[in-house]
Nucleic acid binder design. Sequence first.
DNA 1: AGAAATTTGTCCGTATGTATC
DNA 2: AGATACATACGGACAAATTTC
Lengths: 140, 140
Amino acid sequence: MPTPHHGQPRYRVIAEDLRRQIESGAIAPGSLLPAESALTAEFRASRGTIRQAIAVLRDERLVATEHGRGTYANPYRYKDGPADGPDVETTERQVAADPELAALFAVEVGAALIEQQNVTLMNGAVGAVVRIYRLPGAMH
Amino acid sequence: MPTPHHGQPRYRVIAEDLRRQIESGAIAPGSLLPAESALTAEFRASRGTIRQAIAVLRDERLVATEHGRGTYANPYRYKDGPADGPDVETTERQVAADPELAALFAVEVGAALIEQQNVTLMNGAVGAVVRIYRLPGAMH
DNA sequence: AGAAATTTGTCCGTATGTATC
DNA sequence: AGATACATACGGACAAATTTC
């Protein structure tokens, strides 16, 4: 229960341990780490400390966490894709108004809106996505 | 790692900074502030100091905190503006990537994206809504 | 389709030790 | 000595996303 704080903090020791397991393959790439609750038992640490340890690995991009799912080991390991495209790709479609858009346009949630989406590419990678919403029938 | 404390206490400086972000709209009214853990990183302050800063804003009713959910900005503030608003209202905030945006940006669903929303007004009515998405950290 | 269990996200309150004004 | 702040750690509770039954 104390807070040693001498030497190395616990969360760093735990992060170190988990990193080894991931890099050694003991935790397979793409697989889920044990749940936080399981790690609290395994390391006899509080959940906050476990989460701090995982945060270290997340900063290193060694793991990726998804809400309600878990924490994946070695999530992103693929090379660059060439796939060059035009500078801007434009698509237009009809979508349902989310609550905020509904309030702005003074229509009901779920009402039809026109969405024009422009995807701008910079060096082959997506630089920004622009979505323009307007009411059906509005001039443009 | 000094503890300057020259002039104003740290928590007041942080509160001041957050207040500016809220009042300027950089943190959209009704949206969530970054989590305490995120603010500790952003301001390089301890959690206790962050909580103290938020407590200041809470006392001012500038924010409202809900247990387990987060801290909301400007729970209710829409006093009369001094004059008519501009033709374009711009707000910026952090949102979670929907499946399509996630695919475009090559991030995971739910990952943080920056959304800049421009609401263009025509004769006081909303003419169009433009939402621009980009990766956090990207220049703009 | 719906309820329950699982899991992560967040906040709350508290505590200990250290360091700097 | 006292005030301020940092870093770490605990345990609890509620919220939200996902999966499972």
